[in-house]
Write a protein that binds this DNA or RNA. Sequence first.
DNA 1: GTTACTATACCGTCCAGCCGGTACAGTCCT
DNA 2: AGGACTGTACCGGCTGGACGGTATAGTAAC
Lengths: 187, 187
Amino acid sequence: MVEPSAVISSARDRILEAAERVVGETGAAKLTLDAVAQAAGVSKGGLLYHYPTKEALLGALAERYVRSMEQCVEAAKGGLSEGDHGRDLKACIVGALASGSRSKAMGAALLAAAANDPTLLDVIRERAVLFTEHLAASSSDFARAAIVMLAVDGLMMRESLRISPFTDEQREQIVHELLNIADESYR
Amino acid sequence: MVEPSAVISSARDRILEAAERVVGETGAAKLTLDAVAQAAGVSKGGLLYHYPTKEALLGALAERYVRSMEQCVEAAKGGLSEGDHGRDLKACIVGALASGSRSKAMGAALLAAAANDPTLLDVIRERAVLFTEHLAASSSDFARAAIVMLAVDGLMMRESLRISPFTDEQREQIVHELLNIADESYR
DNA sequence: GTTACTATACCGTCCAGCCGGTACAGTCCT
DNA sequence: AGGACTGTACCGGCTGGACGGTATAGTAAC
């Protein structure tokens, strides 16, 4: 073992990624410990060493989702000018929708986790409440800003569930228009 | 037996409603035949008489969702003037978001069904494609119309999952503004 | 030898689906 | 009228398999 903590985190990450893959390929109900272990190239014992219960695994999946979203948004924020009104909202759009196929798998995994343990969504709800308050306080047109947020949610969900009806071109139009509306609601 | 078909359909409906209740109260993973049977006041044998497999039950749940949505939209359409541009889109907003707690339970049930059998979502996707084409052909601003649709989706999902962060007042504002944008995208 | 981790065998529970039965209404034959 | 039979609706126990979790033995690095 070259770097214990590195190995730890990479093994744990590998398992999480494997879990996302399993959900994406076979559906939320087939998210079993055996399936995840096999997909991760780990024995069931190994899996349970890292995540002692299924609940722990699902929790880690949900936490990973939140962390990753935050990172994406933060990264997108860096690409916007500081004085930009509605920068947070725009970063949400870009961050959540730009990061390729990754977010789809994670969204599906979150839904799968929620199916087994609905309380895992509490964190999401809390975050949404906070962000909504921020929106209400900072935007000049709350309803529009909220609609942008909801549309981002809707698109993410559709893509996670693979039921998005849009062509690439249409999707691009939509993202572009979302940014426009975000601008409008801050003027 | 006074009216055979009436008894049959009511028993089947009772089971479907019970299934929705089970999902809403205990989560998608706890949607077992026993739980549904008990909630419907029917024995497991009786349940399996009406829906011979779990897959059949889930399929009926998904179908019920689609039918109910169509009815809601159709009903909402009746309340709008015929010459109204964007009447279909507005009917979607009103129909999908106005019908109280019913649609939440059905949305959750659909998600639960999809967890067990992702192919059940195919119908939803097809419908979405059709509606998107309709939108693209009829609206003057496709992106805005699509955003409205996505926001409706997002709000429905959040409410189905009980993670909507909005107060009643905020929700009202949002619906109102959705109708505004729907108008704009048809002028 | 201790820590970090893997592998396999096994256990108990849960659950979908099956099956043999019950009740009862209608129908047909006599 | 009444017995024989049929189809519909429903019951509840059973089973086989899947799955979450445990136990234990083993390996590799330091």
